[in-house]
Amino acid sequence: MPSRLKGVLPYAALFVGAAYLFYDAATFAAAARPGQLGPDFWPRAVLVLLMIVCGCEILRKLLFDRGVDAVVADAPHATPHDEEASAPEPRFPLRLGVGIALSIAYVLTLDVLGFFVATALYLALFMVTGRYYRSRVVLLSSVLGSLAFVFVFMKVVYVSLPLGVGPFKVLSVWLLALLGIR
């Protein structure tokens, strides 16, 4: 019984979420012109579909399910599961956590450190987190890699990569001058 409830829970949560958004759509429904469908029509139609699907799933799970659904093949996106079954791979939840934290830190510091510094740091730390420790390769590939990105995206095609602030900005501007970008 508890496992059955557990299976229902995500669908119930989705149902509630959808219901809330349906209610929230009222805030912009007022923009509609008389006699025409408003901007709320489409999202609400999608939400109704979502709620119907969730409702059906909840009913199905409560009435018929015997816990087989979880292992149904999930074809075109998941890794083929025979791989999963034959080779139970070591999992590194901690490294995954560090990887996510690194990515967040990268976005946070990009504006301050500027693209070049932040990227070089990110690349190097990411490689180390991924269990690659040959320091010379890490250092070289991350610095040269970021330089290549700066060159391509500032000189060849212009993308407004952040320059950073304070001393980092000075470094970025100097780097641009060095690469002949003016």
Partner: peptide
């Protein structure tokens, strides 16, 4: 250590050009 090196290098460069 290489990472520390990179940070130190970047810092030194930045300071110099600043």
């Amino acid at each position: 250590t290489s990472i520390k090196g990179a940070v130190a290098l970047a810092g030194a460069l930045a300071a110099a050009f600043c």
